[in-house]
């Protein structure tokens, strides 16, 4: 009888461990899925693939949830998993040349109406080379500091700051050129 009751309480503690894990996982999903999706969207430039990669990322996160010790590091931990998942996608499709195609995200994106300023800006951000676009997204969408971005991308901080500068510089130049064009078109 004693043995039986001990077994039962063991079972109960396993149950509560698993429930705790599930609870922790669901909290993680609800806190970070938006940032992760947006990061993937700007990284990959296709909303369907972005969604798949986010799904894969969280699935992998579930499997290795025990390795996440510091809750504060959860977001960068997830971003690291996502980058790895995305790299894996490229390994699988290394002969697929579609990555060199013009981003097709613009036509599919429902929330960006054409001919608006936002649409135009969206296009310019998509045109930024990945090495400038990615740190910009990490800073603007995920709110990481230069130092955190440097850690995530395995670059030194100065390089990151230079890329952030160039990214905005390119957008600013495009904006200035665009308004010059508009002025001359109107005039």
């Amino acid at each position: 009888m004693k043995i039986f009751s001990r077994n039962k309480s063991d079972n109960m503690s396993v149950l509560s461990d698993m429930r705790e894990k599930q609870r922790q996982y669901e909290a993680l999903v609800s806190a970070y899925h938006k940032d992760l999706y947006r990061y993937a969207y700007w990284l990959i430039q296709d909303q369907h693939i972005a969604e798949d990669v986010v799904q894969e990322t969280f699935l992998r996160a579930w499997k290795s949830l025990d390795s996440l010790v510091d809750a504060k590091a959860a977001k960068s931990w997830l971003i690291t998993i996502l980058r790895r998942e995305n790299a894996r996608r490229f390994e699988r499709k290394q002969f697929d040349m579609s990555e060199f195609d013009e981003p097709n995200i613009l036509d599919k994106s429902a929330n960006v109406e054409s001919d608006t300023e936002q649409y135009w800006l969206n296009k310019q951000i998509n045109r930024l080379p990945l090495e400038y676009r990615e740190p910009l997204v990490l800073q603007v969408v995920a709110g990481f500091s230069g130092e955190e971005i440097a850690n995530l991308l395995e670059l030194n901080k100065n390089t990151v700051m230079t890329r952030l500068f160039r990214a905005r510089n390119m957008l600013k130049e495009a904006l200035d050129n665009n308004s010059t064009l508009e002025r001359s078109a109107n005039g």
């Binding site: 947006r38 429902a110 960006v112 800006l121 969206n122």
Partner: peptide
């Protein structure tokens, strides 16, 4: 501000 707004693309409903 414009970049921020632009980057906050809609997240698919019920993704979570």
């Amino acid at each position: 501000n414009n970049i921020e707004q632009c980057m906050k693309v809609d997240v698919p409903e019920d993704l979570a």
